[in-house]
Design a protein around this nucleic acid. Structure first.
Lengths: 219, 219
DNA sequence: ATTTAATTCAAACGACTGTTTGAAACATGC
DNA sequence: GCATGTTTCAAACAGTCGTTTGAATTAAAT
């Protein structure tokens, strides 16, 4: 446990720095200096800086996505022929992701990274994320649809989009909540955060759509 | 109208490139090559790359924030002694921001930029954004509180945070909606987008909070 | 113990970074 | 016309960037 091998030292350090400053703002030399490894080790073990980023993300995201799918499958089995309840679907989606916040070692670091990655427009990274989410998205999209009978697919898609924004922002920028509003944020209490997020988004999903054209004048 | 001066050519080009690739990923030489100006012109007119970014953001964000405050003031005046309705507050917050999407010239470009900026963790930029929003945040925060009688301030803060995430994600990554779900996105129809966003977030704000401790087992 | 493979290392590659400089070119007021 | 202040320009500054190389070291296999 004491001394980690070069590969994981690079991964850990890259994760921390990418999360703190962003992919472009961190150089390989920043990483190897902090990880105390040789510069060429990065290319030996990962091939390129971009591939290192993918490895950093995949290491944490893959177990999370597996947990998500397993949770959803279990909920489906329990529900039998009935559709899984909306709140339950959202919980399967959020909980595995926010659970890492409770781990003081990697939590704050990875939370920021994953939020950052979700919003990054690096083309390679986006393609990589698409492939990482290739299973999760259609599964949860279908579950959401089933839990919202009568809601048009287009509306479900838009509201999923809103939900994704709220989720990523909460994960990534929770510290801004304290900065802007003064309300404190306790990373260890991720269950309360998830509960709040579920309350908000579930109500959003169930909202009655207002008529397409807003009236110009009140009266 | 034909030939713009150096300063605005730099601003326009920087806005486009920052939005496309991000602040760190774009070099001053990328900008001056595309804008067809001299490299030193950037420092002559703006002082530094960071200051250029601030100028790019401020040029569009300042009128938007003025419009937001004016809209809220007008709604307050109309409401008299009553509190402004939640949906109306949200409309004042969203509409000026999303209106730029309808402008095919700057819309897609600035939308991405502002979304990117809201999530960026560049310390200087964050300080700058705080000062740019110094008026808007407390005003709207107070209006939201007033429109949600009985909701604890802590809840309002969290839900404002969720709302901000949904807003930024929608503004910045609307194209992902098509990519992930297949549902098309029409930038010219920003009013429908805003209506959808208001429906979702207003319902989220009004959601009944579920009890703090989730039951471990169903039965 | 010797050969083979995996890993680490210092050094260099060429290209690119934000910023500064001081001389030109331009515009303006007198 | 000349002087003034503003704006443009090419060139250089001092670094940093991701990546590659080939030799030195360590580990594993025979």
């Amino acid at each position: 446990m004491k001394k980690k091998d070069t590969k994981t030292r690079i991964l850990d350090t890259a994760e921390r720095l990418f999360a703190q400053k962003g992919f472009d703002a961190v150089s390989l030399r920043n990483i190897i200096a902090s990880a105390k490894v040789n510069l060429a080790a990065v290319h030996y073990h990962f091939g390129s800086k971009q591939a290192l980023l993918h490895a950093v993300v995949a290491r944490r995201l893959r177990p999370i996505n597996e947990e998500r799918l397993a949770g959803l499958a279990e909920a489906r089995a329990k529900a039998g022929k009935r559709a899984v309840k909306l709140e339950r679907v959202l919980e399967c989606l959020f909980l595995p992701l926010f659970r890492v916040q409770a781990n003081p070692k990697v939590g704050p670091t990875f939370s920021r990274l994953i939020g950052r990655v979700l919003f990054d427009r690096n083309a390679n990274l986006q393609k990589f994320m698409m492939s990482e989410l290739a299973e999760v998205i259609p599964q949860f999209s279908a579950a959401l649809d089933a839990s919202l009978p009568g809601l048009a697919k287009e509306e479900t898609d838009w509201r999923s989009h809103f939900m994704a924004g709220a989720m990523a922002h909460t994960l990534c920028n929770a510290d801004l909540l304290a900065k802007f509003t003064g309300t404190q944020f306790e990373p260890s209490d991720y269950e309360t955060t998830v509960r709040r997020l579920i309350d908000f988004t579930a109500a959003g999903f169930r909202a009655k759509a207002s008529p397409p054209t807003r009236p110009r004048k009140k009266k």
